[in-house]
Design a protein around this nucleic acid. Structure first.
Lengths: 338, 338
DNA sequence: AATCTGAACTAAATCGTTTTAGATTATCGT
DNA sequence: ACGATAATCTAAAACGATTTAGTTCAGATT
């Protein structure tokens, strides 16, 4: 089997404890011995067993990840996947490995975290935060950060949704649109922030928002978006521009518009949210707001590691990461058409 | 802290070993005691520590995942991400959790696997299989399955690339195309299989394949595809149909075609490979071959778990998963244009 | 009644580390 | 040269489980 510390100790003619101390930079070991141990460890290819260290120290250097978008897209989710990616990179940079915590039968997420002995957990993607399972996690004493959702005074990394939506609205308004509709996603904290920003922008511009211009749709669900879009297009006074829940849903919206023989943006304008690269390669490139997924993932990892390593001095907080408007070409400039 | 077996034993008035046996269905424990233990465990919320079990038994019920597409797409990779997703689901169904094995400085992937004590490893996504790092893994005695790449007699799950490509070619040929070009990806085993099938289909149809009709491109790299496509379009005798390395690259190809003022499929036909849902929502939907990512991921998990649990009776093999043609609308029917 | 058998339990070793407390030198002041 | 002090090492317990080798005590056998 693998070479253990016992073998290494024997090879060095030292006690196990001396070797352990040498490897862990304890002060009460001579430089000569330390060098010898390090050299021998290198030669024999010694690696401490994470399992044994973990058992003894109570720290595993593993981070749990809740990624439960069973419904549909899985790891291909256009927003959460890149968040996870950068969360992973930053975690590994800090010496932590990622484990997925599943909700296996009979084991709650918290149970699972304890079972695996993870040092902390990040809720990256989760269809519903109001489940007993997630609540139990939130109320536990496990270090935790959430993406995009604020619960129970826990730390949370989120896009500046109001800022992003406001920039998008300002852009659309500046292009002369007045009849603007919003197919929004589920009214989570994210959703509500965006809706608020939408309404504010409209009222700041002195524009009314007819009730049927704000429609609840679903995140990441093109088929639903398609249906909803068709409804909007068939209104007696249809909007000139429609905001979608996200870029992926926008695909369904675009489809719906084309199916009516309408052109984008000549006949109808449309905007997404997320900044998915693929949509920028489509023709025409989608007007949208790029969320800084990489920044969010990295911030989450940093925060979580801090919570773990400096529990005394680290406080819970909500960290906002700015978004950036991508103008694209799917919102017509009505001023330019005299 | 958490409730340990020691506490549970005390609570039951039994020895630690009796409790352990009760929990693990040993025969030499009375039914009465077993029930009592189970009940107490439930009440106290006892969970065995995976760490401790792992240390003692040498089995961790964790699977390592190599997913190293640092280059670009990360978890949004349109083909590997869904593979990973289903690999994860099937693994969890069988009681295994997934850990990412990173190549941290100074620790090879194999080292990392041993360090974490994973029971097996799956190479899902990997930019280059010819590195010492991957070779070391392949030559180790760790249970292992690879996706799409055959190395060293290890188990491998792959799409039936020849079948897929052949079906695609038959479809294209049936639509009357004779000047067909292929921008292929890196010549890995996958790439070579597809090229072989392409050449066979052409020669079966008695068609020549000019050298400049087979161009090496890159997988998952729209910008590169764009450049290469422009080259093909500017040939003295340009192809009527171009096969792309994959759907994502096809986006770059489509872009290039449009940039020349050409229409798809009226002026040029194009086909992808993978069956990415997004591309089916674009207009027109892409002609492509859907790889059964879910089937591949699940098969990989099953194979790996077998290798782990029945090492004697399980042999290494190459498992092929059929692909399916998605006709789409990007390949013109030349017969229909008299 | 003495012995054997088997069921049901316990003690203790073990997995590979870390860490506390104690042991062994070597160094030094006097 | 002698005890004190510091430097360097070792022994052993502990982490939380599993598992081997007993042990105990009914009840059956003779």
């Amino acid at each position: 089997m693998a070479v253990t510390i016992k073998l290494l100790a024997a090879h060095c003619g030292l006690s196990v404890s001396a070797v352990s101390k040498a490897l862990n930079n304890y002060p009460d070991v001579s430089d000569k011995t330390r060098q010898a141990v390090l050299k021998a460890a290198e030669e024999l290819g010694y690696r401490a067993s994470a399992t044994a260290v973990s058992l003894k120290t109570g720290r595993s250097r593993m981070l749990g990840v809740i990624y439960a978008d069973e419904s549909q897209s899985g790891f291909t989710h256009s927003y959460f996947s890149p968040v996870l990616q950068s969360f992973r990179e930053e975690s590994e940079r800090r010496g932590y490995d990622l484990v997925f915590v599943s909700t296996r039968e009979g084991m709650s997420s918290l149970d699972h975290c304890r079972f695996r002995g993870v040092d902390g957990v990040c809720i990256v993607c989760c269809t519903n935060y109001d489940t007993p399972d997630i609540q139990e996690l939130m109320n536990s004493d496990l270090p935790l950060v959430g993406i995009d959702h604020v619960v129970n005074g826990r730390s949370c990394i989120a896009s500046e949704n109001r800022q992003g939506m406001t920039e998008l609205m300002n852009y659309i308004l500046a292009r002369g649109h007045r009849r603007i509709a919003y197919i929004h996603g589920e009214p989570t904290s994210v959703g509500l922030d965006r809706i608020t920003a939408f309404r504010r922008a409209m009222s700041s511009a002195g524009l009314p928002v007819p009730d049927n211009y704000i429609v609840q749709g679903k995140y990441h669900h093109p088929a639903d978006a398609r249906r909803t879009m068709l409804g909007l297009l068939s209104l007696p006074e249809p909007p000139t521009c429609i905001l979608m829940p996200d870029d992926y849903s926008a695909l369904g919206g675009i489809e719906a518009i084309h199916s009516q023989g309408l052109r984008i943006p000549e006949d109808v304008s449309i905007a997404g949210y997320d900044g998915v690269p693929v949509l920028q390669m489509c023709d025409p490139p989608l007007t949208t707001v790029a969320q800084d997924a990489a920044g969010i993932g990295a911030a989450a990892a940093r925060k979580l590691v801090h919570l773990i390593e400096f529990p005394e001095t680290t406080f819970n907080e909500i960290i906002s990461i700015p978004s950036r408007l991508i103008p694209g070409s799917t919102v017509a400039d009505l001023n330019a058409v005299p």
